[in-house]
Amino acid sequence: MGPFLELLYDVIFSPAAAMRQIAARRPVGQAFVAFLLSIVIPAGAIYFVLQATATGKFAGAFFAAAVCVRLLMWFVGSAVLQLIAELFGGQGTAVGLFAAIGFAHLPFIFAVPLAVAGLLLPAGAAAMLFAAGVLVLVFWVLALTVIAIQGVHGLSAAKAVLVLLTPLLAAVVVFVGAAFWPPLG
């Protein structure tokens, strides 16, 4: 438990060192626990919100779906990023990246205190605070993912950002291509 708590601390407060350590040790079990916490806790909060609304009967289904989809996305996303990182000259292992990305999602646990703070504010201010807070969390997780790619594969920051953005750019190209297909004329 001790090293795990220290690793969690380092992921939050000194992520570069933490990701290098994760790349070297590849603690998949601990990464699984960290990832599970980062999705179960926010999904649990949403579960309570849904239960308090008319959509309460779907709360359980939402919770199960959210956990399953996120786990699948972690697995598939890590595989895709591993492939792209290797294409960019990365030397790290797939298991190392899988574990590092698992830890990179940790900031999402702060969504719950954020949501509770929002509930205590007037409706308009709550929406603004929550939107701004979620934006910060998303950027935090993206930054940690870039640091994870850097730490595992020893890539430069620019290349790590490119690794992260490549699937997105590919998706944009595919969608734009599909929109203009078949070509006119």
Partner: peptide, 14 residues
């Protein structure tokens, strides 16, 4: 903090 928030969410939301 997170645990308290989660418990609070369970009681505050309704």
């Amino acid at each position: 903090v997170v645990a308290v928030s989660l418990v609070a969410a369970a009681f505050i939301v309704p």
